[in-house]
Design a protein around this nucleic acid. Structure first.
Lengths: 208, 208
DNA sequence: ATATAATCATGCATGCATGTATGTAAAGTG
DNA sequence: CACTTTACATACATGCATGCATGATTATAT
């Protein structure tokens, strides 16, 4: 087989990305060779170098396909909670783990980012995507928290930056541990319990 | 130089471990060759293979030197808080981040475990050490929480397993993010704030 | 219908990393 | 003072993985 049709080409490209996602999330990035990816996709290495410049470009394209949950959080959350900032914040953070719980692609990609990819200079563009998504998430949460303070849901003495660090760390930690062993606990229940308890603590400190 | 004295041999072995710790935490494990480690320690690769079987043995020996904070937590915490389980739990979890904040070796090793080491079959023995430490930490915290319930600090309806997942995830997330950028926030303050707020939430739910 | 360009396969060159085998000179041992 | 072992250095063999260059064949455009 040579020169398949344009639609076929797109199909093989997608299969290459699928294979990369599977292998990287299963064996690790550095531990997976281009040859393994090609074989898993049913082609040779030549096909990869036709569609992608190199390994990093392959990874980058693979990431490009999925919207990281931190990104998706912002647009997805309903607007009708705007008069209840604290509930909005809770809903948005929960949306992150809900997306992760339901979408296998997100699971694979986040597994790669958290556990199957060394954080080194070579792979910096990969992690930039991760960091950028998290930073916008942090900024967004900070804004919502300030609204919560303005509306009296939290005391004026509350430190939004400090609170956001705690809440994002909580979600990150839950995701980190759940990806290590998804059978160990239910991520939705864990996130709800953690968020609700933490928010309850914030509100108690309001009245204190 | 050939055949230095026995004391010198121990010194070079220590320098090899130091070099490995520095390079692995800076460049990643898979991205660092035995030659780089040897050069950084001022010897050749032959020296490494004399002291260690292979790369994995080198990493394992490097980990063996430090006690992971989750391990250290158990023995270190004072016993006089035994009549206040909740305070004991808080102290123990805080001890983890305090050790991390103060000890550079712990910082390097945890950086490797969290960010500079792919979680793959080849490096499984490495992560086993991490997981084992965390599991004993979880078990210990669960016990303390049950005591807190018995003493009425928490309602009988509280789910210790659920609470532990949240608290450990919180600490994990804080460590994870702090290691990414230690300048971004103060880890002690963040951990205290997160723990206190969460515990306050637990207690509020007690009275509810 | 012809020229062009796309889609991949194949082969090669190169470099790097690992592991091992061997050499060597001094330290340890009696 | 033998002579054995230790602590490394040096050298080699091997295997991969990458990147590129080229080839083959057909879709596609004009």
């Amino acid at each position: 087989m040579v020169r398949r049709t344009k639609a076929d080409a797109l199909a093989t490209k997608a299969e290459l990305l699928d294979a990369a996602e599977r292998l990287f999330s299963a064996q690790g990035v550095a531990n997976t060779s281009m040859m393994q990816v090609a074989e898993a996709a049913g082609v040779t290495r030549g096909a990869i170098y036709h569609h992608f410049e190199n390994k990093l470009d392959l990874i980058d394209s693979m990431m490009e396909r999925v919207r990281l949950p931190f990104d998706q959080m912002i647009e997805q959350t309903s607007q009708r909670l705007v008069d209840n900032p604290l509930a909005l914040l809770r809903a948005r953070l929960l949306n992150i783990v809900q997306l992760l719980d339901r979408d296998p692609h997100t699971q694979s990609v986040l597994t790669i980012l958290f556990h199957k990819c060394e954080y080194v200079d070579d792979t910096l563009p990969i992690h930039f995507r991760h960091l950028r998504a998290r930073n916008t998430c942090i900024d967004e949460c900070t804004l919502v928290l300030q609204q919560a303070i303005e509306r009296g849901q939290l005391p004026a003495s509350a430190n939004p930056a400090q609170i956001v660090v705690s809440m994002v760390a909580m979600i990150d930690g839950i995701i980190y541990n759940w990806l290590l062993d998804p059978e160990y606990f239910n991520i939705i229940e864990a996130a709800e319990h953690a968020l609700d308890t933490f928010i309850a603590g914030l509100q108690q400190r309001t009245s204190a």
